[in-house]
Design a protein around this nucleic acid. Structure first.
Length: 108
DNA sequence: ACCCTGATTGTTGTT
DNA sequence: AACAACAATCAGGGT
């Protein structure tokens, strides 16, 4: 993404819990697509465990994260592609969700 | 109009 | 069944 936000972006990570923002959960809230990391873990989890026999979740998670960042955009490509594919799936659900939820569906 | 925050996804291993 | 760090991602509300 050849575009960087000039704004201070302030690492939008949940650091400040003093936000007090309640988001209303909709009954038709579609579960978002998986993140590239999810796919990455899906593929690496097996490898990491093989290279680290007897490794626990904590270790795997950490090493996984480091490996993930160590990847180049090229390596992330396939994972990101999957994430994008899943996102597309989510788009459909989201569309139906925003459409109005219940229309005329009798199948369940 | 722009920013931020919370919620969600999946992994494994244990309790 | 739920939780634990790890990273990404999005949609909506708030200012």
């Amino acid at each position: 993404m050849p575009k960087e936000k000039t704004t201070t972006r302030k690492s939008a990570k949940s650091a400040d819990k003093s936000a007090g923002g309640k988001k209303k959960k909709d009954p038709n809230m579609p579960k978002r697509g998986l993140s590239a990391y999810m796919f990455f873990a899906n593929d690496q989890r097996d490898k990491v465990r093989e290279e680290n026999p007897g490794i626990k979740f904590g270790e795997v998670g950490k090493v996984l994260g480091e490996r993930w960042k160590a990847l180049n955009e090229k390596q992330k490509a396939p994972y990101d592609a999957k994430a994008a594919a899943d996102k597309k799936r989510y788009e459909e659900e989201k569309a139906a969700y925003t459409a109005g939820g219940d229309e005329d569906e009798d199948e369940e």
